[in-house]
Computed example of a mutant assay.
Amino acid sequence: MTKVNQQLRLPSGRLLAYDEYGAPDGAPIFYFHGSPSGKLEYGLFGGEVLADRLNIRMIVPDRPGLGRSEFQPGRQIGDWPADVVALADQLALARFAVLGYSGGGPYAAACALKIPERLTRVGIVSGTAPFDEPGLSAGIDSTSLRFMQLARTKPRLSRLTLRLMAIMARFAPHQIVKGAMATLPVPDQAMLTHPEFQDRFIAMIRGALRAGPRGAQWDTALMVGPWDFRPYDVRSEVYLWHGEMDASAPIAMGRYMAAAIPNSHAFSYAGEGHLSLISNYLEEILNLLIA
């Protein structure tokens, strides 16, 4: 079962878009994409075949302002659990697991904090940590770090940059891939050498920016700015996976989250980066979340 471009009208009137993969009666998992990204991201790493094989019902929503979900003015990371609950209620899911990847990690942590009674398990893969904690962002490639910080310090310039990215993704996708290759470690470069992965990577960028740059800029600004909660307030059990060669969310971020969350279980991988870890270990990760 694959259902794409579904939309839910939330109680506020705002539209929330989501895709579904796998078995309708399978173990439900909500996948939270990175930043800036969108629901097509799941297609980079998983898909219908994997979800079917593991008997999983994978639900992948676009966050507000990204993809096909409507923008939510003034939103904070901690507002996300309410959208998740509304979608779960619409789908008649009393309990479910959540998996946050990269910039989706803070949103999984927010769910662990705010709706623990609805969650079966919480996983974070290559997740970001608070950028205002000293030293945690030092290992990020300088070009990538400037791009992310621009969303908070110079939002208008950030939106212009994102608009240009959307144009390049449409008319010069090879330049997007070339730029990404220049900032990534060897394990992640290896992923981007595959033409099919490149196509899905470009489709993800196009999908995320289809409604314009405002949502992507805001989402990134929330990630790099002060969060509206602290990880040490999370009391639920959280599983963390991180690659030691990650240059997008350095291993220091993973170690910080493991130390900050009292009931955490952390797994690190010496030869893996930001893209390669989830690509190579997604089945193992999903099996643990549904165990």
Rank of each mutant, 00 (worst) to 15 (best):
G207Y: 11
L164I: 09
E284L: 13
L286F: 11
L288D: 08
A23W: 07
N280T: 14
R170C: 07
F45N: 06
L192S: 10
A27N: 09
E284M: 11
R159D: 13
P185Y: 05
E237L: 02
D132R: 00
G43C: 12
Y31N: 00
H242M: 06
A252D: 15
G243M: 05
L145E: 03
E284H: 15
A169K: 02
P130W: 03
V4L: 15
V85H: 05
M245T: 09
Q198D: 13
N5M: 00
L150E: 12
R235A: 11
L50Q: 13
R159C: 07
S69W: 11
A291G: 15
L157H: 12
P73N: 12
K3F: 05
A97R: 03
S37F: 04
S279M: 14
E283A: 15
A180D: 11
L16Q: 10
E41Y: 08
Q76N: 11
L54D: 06
P134C: 09
L40A: 15
L184I: 09
E41K: 08
S144W: 12
A51T: 03
M253D: 06
G78C: 10
P61G: 09
V234R: 05
Q217Y: 00
Y18S: 03
I29W: 02
G254A: 09
L192G: 10
P213E: 15
L289M: 10
I29C: 03
R118Q: 00
M148I: 01
P11L: 14
Q198L: 13
R206S: 10
L54W: 06
P187E: 10
D199N: 15
N55K: 15
D141F: 04
R57C: 04
E20R: 07
S142K: 15
L113G: 10
G34K: 01
M245D: 13
Y239S: 12
L119E: 04
I290A: 09
S158E: 11
F201M: 13
T120D: 01
A203Q: 14
D141K: 02
G43V: 09
I56A: 05
G225V: 07
V234F: 01
L240Q: 01
I115W: 02
D25R: 14
Q90V: 01
L286A: 04
A258C: 07
T161V: 09
V60H: 06
Y107S: 00
W218P: 01
G215Q: 12
C111Q: 00
P116M: 08
L91C: 05
E237S: 14
F267T: 05
Y18A: 03
